[in-house]
């Protein structure tokens, strides 16, 4: 037997490894730009979480804001909640979308952990979430004063993420 043949498994594995490597790269979901960036916020007619008053897209306009998609069933939302509270204390406008959730639970949550939101859009069926292309909570959108989405972040919001997003936020007065 020639020694060259013994290299066949190695070469086969190298090809396979390359295939895996190139595939993983394509699967990287975090860096996928949202197709909604640069688009107006999708129109909606829904109710507010706490007051149950009607609310529509126009409520978002006027001042730049963060739109935060959250739910009580989502542990990561719990993790980012304290940070949202801090942002709210710093005077940053945050609107919540309570996504595929129950009113009572959401109410209890806001009472227990504090309420950083100017108001919450109650989206029990996930209709608005569908329009926004939400994969799962939490997700946060930066929306400018004319109601256009400027950035999107999938996953929890924390100091490190905010550092990157803050420039966009400051820039979209």
């Amino acid at each position: 037997m020639k020694r060259v043949f013994l290299f066949i498994p190695l070469v086969a594995f190298a090809v396979l490894g390359l295939l895996f490597f190139l595939t993983i790269d394509r699967e990287n979901k975090d860096v996928l730009p949202s197709p909604l960036v640069g688009q107006p916020f999708p129109p909606f007619e829904m109710s507010k979480l706490l007051t149950e008053e009607a609310v529509s897209t126009s409520a978002l306009q006027g001042k730049p804001l963060l739109v935060n998609v959250w739910a009580t069933w989502c542990p990561t939302c719990k993790a980012e909640h304290a940070f949202l509270n801090m942002l709210a204390e710093d005077g940053i406008r945050i609107v919540g979308i309570n996504y595929k959730d129950e009113r009572d639970k959401a109410h209890q949550w806001l009472t227990a952990y504090g309420n950083p939101y100017e108001f919450n859009v109650f989206d029990p069926e996930g209709k608005l979430g569908l329009d926004l292309g939400v994969y799962g909570a939490p997700e946060t959108f930066l929306v400018d004063s004319s109601g256009v989405i400027r950035a999107k972040h999938v996953g929890d919001l924390n100091a490190a993420v905010w550092q990157k997003l803050e420039a966009t936020y400051q820039g979209m007065k």
Partner: peptide
């Protein structure tokens, strides 16, 4: 998994959004 999106569906959504844009 309530947070899971079948990858094909995810691609289809993105493609449609892109085309729409």
């Amino acid at each position: 998994d309530e947070n899971y999106m079948p990858p094909e569906v995810q691609d289809a959504l993105e493609q449609a959004h892109k085309d729409g844009k």
